[in-house]
Design a protein around this nucleic acid. Structure first.
Lengths: 111, 111
DNA sequence: CCTAAGATTTAGTTGACACTTACGTAAGTA
DNA sequence: TACTTACGTAAGTGTCAACTAAATCTTAGG
């Protein structure tokens, strides 16, 4: 999860992910799409994406075909939907701390 | 958008966002939740979150109250849903490149 | 005015990361 | 075997981000 979000924080990797969203592509074709960057750099990005579970790799002769793992992306989307609203009991101690904070001065911003 | 994803890539910031998801909290209360980090560090994280538009800041006396901007988070979620499937016409040139790649040898490795 | 509380800002350090160049390797081809 | 293609990996460099400590700002209250 951490790895996935970190991987997506890089614009180049997002673009790669989009390139292989609907089809398999060999590393070279992907790299060709980025004229301003070395093939090696793209290879490293692909490694990060693969380590994060966001792409799959399949070998075909000397080539390696990459494709996005849409299921993992869906999990990430669900994480963004749910993470903030789950485990809210954790907030209790902070709420108490805030309460303590204001208890002395009574009623400025929040009850 | 870029800034938002980058902001979320940091676990500490995600936790902060969760703390202020349902309520306003002063910076001190937030910092108290992270025993192992300085208030200064938290303040800087809050600055990043605010610059990314993920939290709002309101002043109350000497305190500054922060709260998550859930609308922005929803936009981010929608981005994750749509980005990959929009602008697919961009893929055409890559598709052509791949086609060229295989066309010569008719579906083997490479010319 | 003076002081304290709450919070940000400013160096300055350290580690992570994106990148390039150079090299290594596996698989196909002549 | 020798050559070429398609990759990954290693090593080195520059930049950026997260952190600490110290300084600064702002507001409240005596």
């Amino acid at each position: 999860m951490d790895a996935a979000l970190k991987a997506l924080a890089e614009p180049r990797r997002r673009e790669i992910l989009r390139l292989v969203w609907t089809r398999e592509l060999p590393a070279t074709s992907i790299a060709d799409h980025f004229g301003e960057v070395t093939r090696s750099a793209i290879s490293q990005h692909l490694g990060v994406l693969k380590a994060a579970g966001l792409v799959s790799e399949r070998r075909d002769g000397t080539r390696r075909l990459y494709q996005a793992r849409q299921d993992e992306m869906r999990m990430l989307r669900d994480f963004l939907n749910d993470y903030w609203t789950t485990g809210l009991e954790r907030l209790r101690d902070v709420a108490e701390a805030a309460q303590r904070d204001k208890g002395a001065t009574d009623g400025r911003a929040h009850p």
